[in-house]
Amino acid sequence: MSQMTIHLKIWRQEGPDTKGAFENHTLDTVNEHMSFLEMLDVLNEELILAGNEPFEFDYDCREGICGSCNLVINGRAHGPKRLTAACQLHMRNFKDGDSIVIEPARAAAFPVIKDLVVDRSAFDRIIAAGGYITVRTGSAPEANSIPVELEDSTFSFDYAACIGCGACVAACPNSSASLFTAAKLSHLNRLPQGEPEREKRVVAMVEQMEKEGFGDCSNYGECEAVCPKGISIASIAEMRRNYIKATIAG
């Protein structure tokens, strides 16, 4: 099992209103089987033992399902591998002696809380604006009582895979949140349960997305390339169609 030396350049920022800067660290004991976040754990342990402040970074599940991690690694959201969240990335994707730059997601709508942790509550507010359905509460409804077209259930399920990590915003040259918003919209709009609020939902969520200060979408498609779940920008076209139907061509 080979040990690697990795040179790290990591963003350090005290808080939202302070200026940040990069800090350089070299780790000599990186193991190729470590995950990227374990590598950061090792660094933090060294820092703590030496009486220094560790780097803050977000994570929870460490298996690509919660959407907490969102590091920008060498200029790419979640690092070099496609369909892989930063927490699923392994050090074998790097070489001995590599230099790695780690930055937080950068967007006005995602202010830095500390170091690599950014505030993604703008996403929560987009969801709150319309990402819900009206259902009768109480006992679970009979699963087969509402028929759903196979195509719709398939697409809806694909879009529901969005974990809300914000990589799409981080990677978009315009810092647009269109892929996130569109995935949430198509997930609900495609199902009969989401039908009653379809028009209201698309208008409210598009409005909220703009209000939060996310940029316009120029169809760069970078969001799809970095999305750990491979959400297609077809959802953005769907969002536009639903929005136009609800407002302009309604």
Binding site: G75, A109, P173, G215, D216, G221, A225
Partner: peptide, 24 residues
């Protein structure tokens, strides 16, 4: 649209690169 992207990302990335296809 091109001008407003500055407002949406006041602090630029130190390094930035595309992840390649299916990026356009």
């Amino acid at each position: 649209i091109w001008w407003n992207r500055r407002k949406a990302r006041p602090q630029k990335y130190h390094v930035y690169s595309s992840k390649g296809a299916p990026s356009r």
